[in-house]
């Protein structure tokens, strides 16, 4: 199962990178979203999957799933949410200002 998830993570990374290398802002943002999904799966798999009960202490339970990756991912989910929303608003503002969402057309001033 672990290897299947890792392959899934690999596919998510590949599609993410492909989207990030596009020109339109929306695609790039979607790319970053997929990228963080892939990263979360990799981190989760590193703690091995399906070994024991959910990490909530209970006297009847002997083995628990690894809680550490979950804690890391929880932080990461929230941060990537922040990034996604910031990027979205940034894209929306940029598109409004420049009348384009094409990265190649958005060039700054020449070197001052």
């Amino acid at each position: 199962m672990e290897y299947i998830i890792l392959i899934l993570a690999g596919i998510l990374f590949a599609t993410a990178i492909y989207n990030i290398l596009q020109k339109q802002l929306l695609r790039i943002i979607i790319g970053t979203v997929l990228l963080s999904h892939g990263a979360h799966l990799v981190i989760l798999t590193m703690g091995k999957l399906k070994r024991g009960q959910p990490p909530i202490l209970d006297d009847s339970v002997i083995t628990y799933t690894d809680p550490l990756p979950q804690a890391l991912i929880l932080t990461s989910i929230v941060i990537s949410f922040g990034i996604t929303s910031l990027l979205l608003v940034l894209a929306y503002r940029t598109a409004k200002e420049n009348n384009t969402d094409n990265m190649e057309e958005m060039r700054g001033e020449a070197n001052e």
Binding site: E2, L6, I7, A9, G10, A14, T45, M46, K48
Partner: peptide, 17 residues
Amino acid sequence: LALGTGTLITMVGIAAH
């Protein structure tokens, strides 16, 4: 680049596991 990154992640993940 996309396939390279994806393969890299999968292989590194498997090796680490």
